[in-house]
Design a binder for these strands. Structure first.
Length: 103
DNA sequence: GGGGTGACCCAGT
DNA sequence: TACTGGGCCACCC
């Protein structure tokens, strides 16, 4: 898979995350592994840092529920507005975690 | 070619 | 809950 296509895959997957739900970097990497074969959470993080501006990046959080570094305030506001289950400044992953429907 | 770095993850303490 | 160490992989000197 071309690098550009990998970026496209990440972005389109993030766009599919429904309001009120979130995905972790690891979950995204996992879902993409079924298509691209190779991936790692770190790559997803790097891609989001560069291209995340055009997608609902606030629905992408760390696996432990931590919000995006540097944008915690904005992310928290948007997530709350969507009704995402939160616990303090972190996402309640057990309730909010989402995974794309298997074809 | 070698080494540092990062919007990560997991298990152990 | 917070911190640590090891693993991971693309990117940039």
């Amino acid at each position: 898979m071309e690098p550009d296509e990998y970026v496209e895959a990440v972005l389109s997957l993030v766009e599919q995350i429904p309001p009120g739900r979130v995905m972790s970097y690891g979950a995204i990497a996992d879902a993409l592994a079924e298509v691209s074969g190779r991936c790692s959470p770190r790559r997803v993080g790097t891609i989001m840092a560069q291209y995340g501006g055009s997608v609902p990046w606030h629905r992408v959080v760390a696996a432990n529920g931590r919000l995006v570094p540097g944008h915690e305030q904005q992310a928290r506001e948007r997530l709350l507005a969507e009704g995402t289950p939160m616990r303090g400044d972190r996402v309640d992953m057990a309730a909010a975690a989402w995974y794309p429907p298997q074809p």
